Computed example of a mutant assay.
Amino acid sequence: MDMMSGTKLDVIWSPIHHDKFILWGSDITLYQVSRLKDIEKKTTYTQISSIRGATVIASQSANGVRSVDISAIPEQPEPLLALGHANGRVSLASLKQAYDPLGIVGREFNPRYPRLCNSVSWSREESNLLAVAMEKHRSDHCILIWDVNKGSSPPDETQNSVMAQSDNAKPVAEMGLSETAHSVSWSNRSNRTLLASMNLKFIKIFDLRDWSNKGVAVATSRYCHGAVAEPLSGWQVASRGDHVVCVWDARAFSRPLLTLPQQRPVTKIQWCPTRRNLLLSLHRDSNTLRLHDIQQAHNDPNRAVNITDATVNISNVY
């Protein structure tokens, strides 16, 4: 999110550590949520509700980091982050972890040609898969899928070990030769379904159940940015443009199911993970979140749809 100060901030909750989230901008800070009565006296915290507060438990610089996501690997005792850098390198990091059961903290993944990493996204179904969206290079693909169990060894391991694993540090899949991918996100519609916003005009859905035969569905729209699937149904897809939020039906991808004009430029959209048909949007230079309650759209696309908007003030969150 772009706050009024001009500093970019984003909040990401851990999908498996439900009491932890990160706030990232110039730094990446890990918070833990507790009941107010359980927070020790004299501890600095941010109150996030009438009964809960968030305390800082770890932080590090985000210098050079352009995209972040938190994994759903159940074996990790603390949130595992994928950090996409300005030169295209993707690294795995844990802000607070002494025990690394899988030995993957510190692993790195590098494209053939350095360029900006626009987005990273962990698969929830196959938690070892990490998708990366990159800027265009005429001789390389813009979407890379990595198996994090086959990455380069952490730098403190022996040279022989690094060389032994280097042959495996290759993507398991590549898409979009000589194209640009602005964002990627996984869908729960079916296993190995990936959404991508590409080339300022396309939303593409990749069916990756067979790595050698990638099925693709394509929608053309200038409102293609930030494409993300509704997590409970999987077939509703939201995207954004400058002053527009769109909702698509992935089963009939020729035109938007809904087009919702907005008064301000939209900087981010996200589906509610627990309630069906609830979509959130964040607007530039705004201290409120806008909630779109989308009713009946999945029953009859031709029927008038009841849209109820609400705003939530976030001026006291940061």
Rank of each mutant, 00 (worst) to 15 (best):
Q270D: 06
L102R: 14
I145A: 03
A93K: 15
K170Y: 07
Q295N: 08
V148P: 00
F21T: 06
L102T: 12
W24P: 02
G241D: 04
G84Q: 04
V172Q: 06
N213Y: 06
L116V: 15
A82R: 03
R276G: 08
A238C: 06
A310V: 04
A86D: 07
K42E: 00
M134V: 09
D147V: 01
R264V: 11
T267C: 05
M175G: 05
L144A: 05
E108I: 15
H292V: 08
N110S: 07
I294P: 02
R222G: 06
T288A: 05
E179V: 11
W271K: 10
L260T: 10
A54L: 05
L279E: 03
R240F: 09
N168V: 05
L177E: 05
K201Q: 14
A297M: 03
D293N: 12
Y45R: 05
S153P: 08
E40S: 12
W186V: 15
S185E: 08
D147R: 04
V120Y: 05
K170Q: 15
L130M: 04
A304T: 15
P15E: 04
P79W: 08
L36F: 04
N87T: 15
T274F: 02
A250R: 10
E78H: 09
R209T: 15
C142D: 07
W248H: 09
D27N: 15
